[in-house]
């Protein structure tokens, strides 16, 4: 019966529009910290993330750890992505992790950009969830984000 099919379609469309899609949409905060050169790369990444189905909040450049964490709180994002080119990541990233502790939150942080191999472990030691040095396929970070738990479905006191 066409009618049945039509209605089933309609209600499944509604289910998609209202529930599933909305619950599963990952919200990502993308940021560049300090005096960190141009932001072409991060903008392209934002577009790739959008095309992957993420909602990407872009803060713009020259962010401090306090600004990043404040924005992440306001936007209630699932993950913070820090893009870095200047080599200042060993300064800005740990500060961001500390600021998170200070604000009593623990949003996963991923870092991408110009990062020497030696720094990867160091970053992970301060609590970074994953590092994607320049040259890594962007799809790796997309897959990584997709697999993160959805914060919005977590209870938080």
């Amino acid at each position: 019966m066409y009618g049945v099919m039509f209605l089933a379609l309609l209600s499944s469309l509604k289910a998609i529009a209202y529930k599933e899609a909305q619950m599963d949409t990952k919200k990502v905060l993308m940021t560049k910290m300090g005096l960190d050169g141009h932001d072409f790369g991060v903008k392209i990444l934002c577009q790739m993330y959008r095309n992957a189905g993420f909602e990407v909040v872009y803060t713009g450049q020259r962010q401090t750890a306090e600004m990043v964490v404040a924005a992440a709180i306001e936007e209630d994002v699932d993950v913070i992505g820090i893009s870095t080119l200047s080599g200042a990541h060993m300064h800005s990233v740990p500060l961001t992790m500390e600021e998170q502790k200070k604000q009593n939150i623990d949003i996963p942080v991923i870092v991408g950009g110009t990062i020497p191999p030696a720094d990867v472990e160091k970053l992970k030691k301060v609590g970074v969830a994953e590092v994607f040095p320049t040259g890594t396929d962007a799809n790796m970070s997309i897959e990584f984000i997709k697999k993160l738990p959805n914060r919005k479905s977590l209870k938080r006191g």
């Binding site: 899609a21 949409t25 934002c46 577009q47 993330y49 959008r50 095309n51 992957a52 189905g53 993420f54 909602e55 990407v56 909040v57 872009y58 803060t59 713009g60 020259r62 962010q63 600004m67 924005a71 936007e75």
Partner: peptide
């Protein structure tokens, strides 16, 4: 894609 770029914050830093 169902994704979006939310860029308004940039101007409100």
């Amino acid at each position: 894609s169902g994704g979006a770029i939310l860029g308004d914050r940039i101007r409100m830093q």
